[in-house]
Amino acid sequence: MSERNHLRRKWFNRLMLVLSGCAAGLAILILALILGYILVHGISYINLNFLTQAAKPVGEAGGGMRNEIIGSLILIGLASILAIPVGLMAGIFVSDFASPKMAATVRFASDILAGVPSIVVGIFAYAILVRPMHSFSALSAGVALAIIMVPIIARTAEESLRLVPNSMREAALALGITRWRAVLSVIVPGALTGIITGVMLSLARVAGETAPLLFTALGSNFGYQGLTKPIGALPLQIYHYALSPYADWQHQAWAAAFLLLLLVLCISILVRWISGRRHA
């Protein structure tokens, strides 16, 4: 009786352990399927025209996504210019200057902001910029993307600044320099890898964001025409072309997905490599 009970427990143990292994395997298999399909399928549609030509109007074959590639780079650059100073300074405030209560407040606000659905951020940017300026614009899209980047940068900056040992702060202050000099020339450089990692993570995130661009950047066939004019972006074009009935456009959507995925994966792997080296 007890022998059978023992056997039953042993087999049940094995079954459950195997099942949990299968769950991990399944998660990785799904990733492999998605990545593999997009990379293999997408690379076959990448060609010189795709990279160097502008989009053609409906019905004309050919054309490419030059304008959208440039548009995406402009939007990411604009968002970075707006978000990096805010995120970094907020991180410095929380780690080095804030009272515990203020630190908790800012940290809480940035956690909540990080959880706001990106489409809601898009509506916010529409209400405060697009409507008052009477035009969809690159600027409003940049602001929307920056709002998504800020909490990620602030949080990672704060965490890596706090990892800088207090003895470094004491040593800097003991040399007789002021606190702000100590922060800028000792503490921030000490946390630089962590800060850069956070910035890169936020870039990877906004590079593929589509929802906040729908009613801010809108999309445009003419390339960059200034910050106050609509602008095209890769993820927007993937969305429009994926839903289009034209095979040629669908192929371009795959090619664009390949390009975007490659960018995001490279950033992820680079981040992993940098933070792995730091821990080693």
Binding site: L31, G208, L265
Partner: peptide, 20 residues
């Protein structure tokens, strides 16, 4: 790392894969 990489794939690309 591999499981977390799944989270890095942009939503619109998952959607493209989802359609086709």
């Amino acid at each position: 790392f591999l499981i977390e990489m799944l989270a890095a794939i942009p939503s619109v690309i998952i959607g493209l894969w989802g359609i086709y």
